[in-house]
Design a protein around this nucleic acid. Sequence first.
DNA 1: TTGACAAATGACTAACTGGTCATTAGTATA
DNA 2: TATACTAATGACCAGTTAGTCATTTGTCAA
Lengths: 282, 282
Amino acid sequence: MSKKQLIMETALELFAKQGFEATSVQQITDHCGISKGAFYLSFKSKDELILALIDHFMMQITADIDYIVRNAKNEDLLFQFYYSIYQSFYKHSDFAKVLMKEQSHTFNEELILKMQHYDKLISEAILSMIERLYGNAVKETKYDLMYGIKGFMNTYSQLFVFYNVPLDLKRLAESLVEKTNLLARHTTVPFVTEDLVEMIKFNQPGDLTTAKEQILPLIESKMEEMKDSIEKESLMLLKGELLEPMFPPAVVKGLIENIRRHPHCKWVSYLLIRYFELHKKS
Amino acid sequence: MSKKQLIMETALELFAKQGFEATSVQQITDHCGISKGAFYLSFKSKDELILALIDHFMMQITADIDYIVRNAKNEDLLFQFYYSIYQSFYKHSDFAKVLMKEQSHTFNEELILKMQHYDKLISEAILSMIERLYGNAVKETKYDLMYGIKGFMNTYSQLFVFYNVPLDLKRLAESLVEKTNLLARHTTVPFVTEDLVEMIKFNQPGDLTTAKEQILPLIESKMEEMKDSIEKESLMLLKGELLEPMFPPAVVKGLIENIRRHPHCKWVSYLLIRYFELHKKS
DNA sequence: TTGACAAATGACTAACTGGTCATTAGTATA
DNA sequence: TATACTAATGACCAGTTAGTCATTTGTCAA
């Protein structure tokens, strides 16, 4: 394990227990068994560390959600959605704790922008899921429904982030599927309407465009990290496809599928999916 | 305005903007135009200040909820409930911000206990509301419903705590009434069951008993704060009633009603209601 | 074995924190 | 005016912090 990873894992544990501000760099390095100076060889500052942590996990979670929404069949999409989310939270419960503790803390402008960015991506995924599932029937209530779903995600995750009881995640997902369907099919008094969303959008900065120039360096850095494997070869082929399209969509999809499960490639595959969708031969 | 109040108001603003830990005592006193020493004449420590703030607001909010749950007519109980809550949040939006920012921060054991205490009181109020409204029909799902309601409270308050858009609180309340009714009447797959609640209860310490000895000194201190008025006289009579019961319930209820709206008396009236209900002549 | 380079160290700095207390300013009474 | 009292001040203390950098340690190839 690289020093950077060691620091990130150790820091995450401490942040989850004590919070970001209450954890000193000294404490982190002590737990790692390295010196304070060594920390600053891996990270420029303490802030850079928390930003790296947020990216590391949010990329995975966002990519997971997006993949489910794009690929699950309609009849169990909602279940898969809730189930995979709570699995993520369960797997990365330390990270979830940090997120809840530091929720929107003002200590760093950049961090807030980052979180808003991921929040927006997730909202988009949820919205597209809603539209696919209920179509025109929720035209007036879809934003409300999105808020409801995010509310369920939030509320119920607090349950098992703070209390260490074993939970039946399948049952949880089933329960939320039912609730969501109820709200979707019978709501007649929406509150979060289109224009309210419009007003809120002021606070949102423009999104990152998914550009070739952004993805290429990312692929290259990932390839350096990885040892030779199917994944690495797939990455190389995808890089070629990015520079000069030649494969049919099915091949591209297969290549992406090859790398999708690799924890370090979730984000790359997410970006690639979006990119190739945007640049379909038409 | 007393120095204590000045400090509390100024500090609340700063805490809402920057968070508790990120705001120094020096900053607070600078904004107040007083010296650092003067701060410590009003508060023993910075911690005592945040505890005082939490008490000040949570007492009002808790008492409001409890009053609504006890007194609104069934047909618009749910609406009144949501409406008054969001009015509270709207009125005290700086406080709501602080709460969200510091949510479960580990910096103070006492503070966590305090918050758990208020949370428990609010949960009890919500649960009793649910039972009254839906009765046996929600026997299996009432805890789930409680979580749903708390989830709505949480999610939608984030909406207007973080974005400064004018909101139609009546509409919001109406919308949530509908959602709550939907969940209450059609849920068949509960997740938060009785035994799960039982397991969670480990983390909760025993509650404060509502004893005469607790209420009396509180009444006395409130009476000192107030100038002569109907409210003060009512307080005095209630104090007498506490020591030696003599009035019929209707009179007691009237006296409490007299003081209920006074911001400083919300908590006292809440305690008195509970006390007299527990010690009914029977 | 030597020399050259990179990796790691931890004493140190400058800034800031919550909290204290000898001193001073202000005020009411005699 | 003189006295006695409280209210208020801000320099100061001890402690902690993020971040730096001269120095040491480790690891290669020659």
